[in-house]
Design a binder for these strands. Sequence first.
DNA 1: ATATATTTTTAAGCTAATCTAAATATTTTC
DNA 2: GAAAATATTTAGATTAGCTTAAAAATATAT
Lengths: 222, 222
Amino acid sequence: MATRTEEDYIKAIFKITEKNQGSANTNAIAKHLSTSAASVTDMLKRLSEKEYFHYEKYKGVYLTSKGIDMAIKLIRKHRLWEVFLVNKLNFSWDEVHDIAEQLEHIQSEALIEKLDHYLGHPKYDPHGDPIPNAEGKFTLRSQDSLFNLCIGEKGSVVGVREHDNAFLKYLNKLEINLGTRIEVKEHIEFDHSMQVIIDDQNEAILSNKVSKNIFVKKSQLL
Amino acid sequence: MATRTEEDYIKAIFKITEKNQGSANTNAIAKHLSTSAASVTDMLKRLSEKEYFHYEKYKGVYLTSKGIDMAIKLIRKHRLWEVFLVNKLNFSWDEVHDIAEQLEHIQSEALIEKLDHYLGHPKYDPHGDPIPNAEGKFTLRSQDSLFNLCIGEKGSVVGVREHDNAFLKYLNKLEINLGTRIEVKEHIEFDHSMQVIIDDQNEAILSNKVSKNIFVKKSQLL
DNA sequence: ATATATTTTTAAGCTAATCTAAATATTTTC
DNA sequence: GAAAATATTTAGATTAGCTTAAAAATATAT
């Protein structure tokens, strides 16, 4: 059975390789886990013997299918717990990450399957990220960055790219959440911000940084 | 912040002193935590510096109010999670201990208060053990060992003394659970077993070991 | 292509938690 | 109250995970 630290390493490597298309290097892992590069090298040497990933000195690391399996299981657990925290316990989406980070390490197959059932087999977590099913398959969905919508187009929010607390709190303040409908009223060329109408009511100006980090599903145009 | 191991030690000491009326000795702690006496001595020396308990060589250990506070918080968390597992996720009472043993170490005040609220501020866990409230107060209740009931007396099950899995599974088989009504029909002098009627339907013979481990609230006699 | 900068690894060492074996206290028994 | 049994502590090691500082490898820039 893997230790908590081992699980953290595997998940970090998965997340990094997902973005970087390929291998995860020492520094990136160290940064992700807030530890030193030396610790990472040390751990990679020991962990690679357990065959979760391939490691070659100076070349970084990539997961084996055993490692990918573990990472996906952890992501499944993390996201299911987030759904529980938001939907059942009424936490807001900016409060759940740290708690789910702990809960994902609870060891019990039965627990996670019963939790999944209790929550109604959700396909997406409170940030709109897909939850892999028990076989490790993700349900993908077409989505666009709000930034790319044209004037007059409408969409409903299906997710966010950044999970940063400050960003999520800002969205709370704007009353933007999953399911919120947003219509693009104007593109401001000067700074690539946009004027939008939120849920057919409030107007707001969103910076390009914000609009790029919101994913929407475009509404069928009439 | 205390480590998981520290928390386990504090809880073990609390449980042992609760039974033994006084102090917990090295061997008892070692047995409770499935570790060696040498490890315990070692840990007691280091932990006593953090003032969770008083330690005197060869004299055993007793908790300070700081230690008692921590133990009660852990018990609160453990028992609330057990309620969640049984009432919401449909685990049976013999399946929840090991999972709750992990969940009790999750660090988040907000989580446990929201969980408590979600569960409706339960006063007892699935084994009938009292759940301390946020201030650490237990709700006590009058109860008798089923063993002590006289012929003709009736009671409803409010708890169990042993939490042993084999015992709980046996009760499942007999269809005895919290709330089950039991009437004493006969005392068998030979081996101190008793003949009972369960929920006004099935008859059964319970050994003295079983009846001693079941707590009931006596019904008002007509 | 060489100098500079960056990244990675090695080396040496720390802490928490554990172990076994041996030594020392305490308790029990006759 | 001395001998035997039991409980506890000490001593010496081990493992996981981490640290800093220095060395080595790789990448970048002129």
